[in-house]
Amino acid sequence: MAVMSDARARLLSLLSLLQTPRLWPGSELAQRLGVSGRTVRRDIDRLRELGYPVRAEQGGLGGYQLTAGAAMPPLLLEDDEAVAVAIGLRTAAAQPVAGVDEAAVRALGKLLQVLPARLRRRVDTLSSSTVAHPFSLAGEPVDPDTLVVTAATVANHERLRFRYRDEGRHVEPRALVTAGRRWYLLAFDLDRDDWRTFRLDRVTNPAATGARAVTRDVPGGDVAAFVARRTMQMAPTYAADVVIHAPAAQVVDRLGGPPPGTLTEQPGGTCRWLAPPDTLEWHALRLASIGLPFEVGGPPELAAHLRSTAALFQAATAGPDHQGRHDGVAAPDPA
């Protein structure tokens, strides 16, 4: 094997080998790199100086292995690994779930920035062919590129222009926040001279302007609380009282965890769910996902919403003999 005389290229090759989770004998590393064992030891010391925790084991079965350290060092990814990570981050970003926040979006932005064009095309192709689970409870999907551009302006304290409901907006982004099942952008609207909250799935054509954004204090000082108050004002919400005809443990199993609010056992193998305020659509989705018989104790708006939704579904599946009968069915009220 040819000798790798370029020390920087050799270090990158050595790091790529060590990131494979196995114990590498020094002789094998020397053969792979085309250098002496002494050069391998010297390069290992350089990696340690750069913050990579390389453990050495002595003896005939010894060798070198990259281990977990106190800090996160840079990683080298193979082509297929980079594509897999990018697709995972794009999927999570487009359908926000608990635990995925602005840090994940920044990571996606960094990765997409350095992906070669051929790999980015693979990411776009595979992402476009990925179908979400039909029972997913996520909100409206967000364009990952919109999320990345917006997150970058937040991180860089840069002004942002975009279209929102076919209207041009010019803002100073403050934070990206997940609330409920959606991404929101909290920003100071320069044209309206006030704070605004934007649903990111409704943002189109975002573009960083390059102009520096002024650092402003959010009213109340708590970004998440401010966005929560604003989103609560956007749509009517209701607390729900539901009796489910199944034990509480079965409900938790169907949902993959306890629902928000309180879930208490009731006589006769039933349980009572007191759900915190949320939109009628979200209550209906969660109840449908449980897939168990239930009774609505309140509010009456939820009962009415379920009746209108059930009538709409029944008309849609009634068959050709009932075509046209759905014309008089009222659509669910929008939240």
Rank of each mutant, 00 (worst) to 15 (best):
M232D: 09
Q250R: 14
D191H: 14
Y164D: 03
G60D: 14
L287D: 01
A225K: 06
L280A: 10
G26T: 00
A310C: 13
A86W: 02
Y164T: 03
D201R: 02
E167L: 08
V83H: 05
Q95M: 07
G109H: 04
V251Y: 15
A208N: 00
P267S: 09
I44K: 00
M4F: 09
R48M: 01
V105G: 04
A92E: 05
P247W: 04
L292W: 15
G256N: 10
S128P: 14
D241L: 12
G59Q: 04
S128C: 15
P141D: 01
A335W: 06
A175N: 13
L111F: 09
G88M: 12
Y238M: 07
E167T: 07
P332Y: 06
A207N: 13
M4Q: 09
T264Q: 15
Y164F: 10
S289T: 11
F135H: 15
A228T: 06
L112M: 08
L126R: 10
F294T: 14
L76S: 15
L61V: 05
A207F: 15
E172C: 10
E102V: 07
T279P: 04
L263I: 07
F313H: 12
G324P: 11
L285C: 14
T309G: 04
L137R: 05
A71C: 14
L89Y: 04
R106C: 14
G257Q: 07
A86K: 01
L287I: 01
L15E: 13
G51D: 03
A86F: 02
R230H: 08
G34W: 00
V142A: 05
Q314F: 05
D45K: 05
L23R: 08
H326I: 09
T39E: 00
F226E: 04
P276N: 08
S129C: 15
A187S: 08
P53A: 14
T39Q: 01
R182G: 01
R161D: 13
G297V: 02
R325V: 08
P236M: 03
Q65F: 02
T264F: 14
L15F: 15
T178F: 10
D327W: 08
A175S: 12
F162Y: 11
P320G: 05
Y184P: 00
